[in-house]
Amino acid sequence: MSKYDDGGWNPYLAGALVGVLAILSVGITGQFLGASTTFVRVAAAVEQVVAPARVAENVYYQQTAARLDWQGMVLLGILIGAALAARQDRSFKSETVPPMWADRFGPNLWKRGAVAFIGGIFAMFGARLADGCPSGHGLSGMMQLSVSGFVSLTFFFVGGLIVANLIYRRKA
């Protein structure tokens, strides 16, 4: 147990149950878990307000238009499900800077915010280029033994390992 733990379920059990959930979802509705496509749909919806002409002529937005679909509802559900779970075992915590970050880089909200913001830009750009995130490529891709899933997840970790170890490197 690391110093940041506060209980929770056995991760093997919780993960295995996600596997069962994925099987049920695929069996009943034919839908595989994913998350990043919804960010494109929301971005399209926002841009439609400020620059409708640009959205209309963009090829990518034509194939991934602003609409609420199955995956958008999954993300809404994740928000609700996480809130319910946190409420049920009282692990809900109003947190503005992650404790591990604060231990190393201090409690400044804007410093953390700026790094997270830039990270978010890179992460979604990369996810759209790779055509999936740890849900779509990682969980769903690898469950199907898709080569794209194995390759993408490996490179997610390669990029993540390098950056995480660079920023948390001990000062010489």
């Binding site: 609700i80 830039i118 849900s135 390098i162 950056v163």
Partner: peptide, 25 residues
């Protein structure tokens, strides 16, 4: 795309699906 995602993930510390769940808690 994988490497770019990884770089962003290391900086942000959450991925698309878990970021929404993190808000929930």
């Amino acid at each position: 795309g994988g490497i770019l995602f990884g770089i962003g993930w290391g900086l942000f510390g959450l991925c698309p699906g878990t970021s929404i769940g993190a808000l929930g808690e």
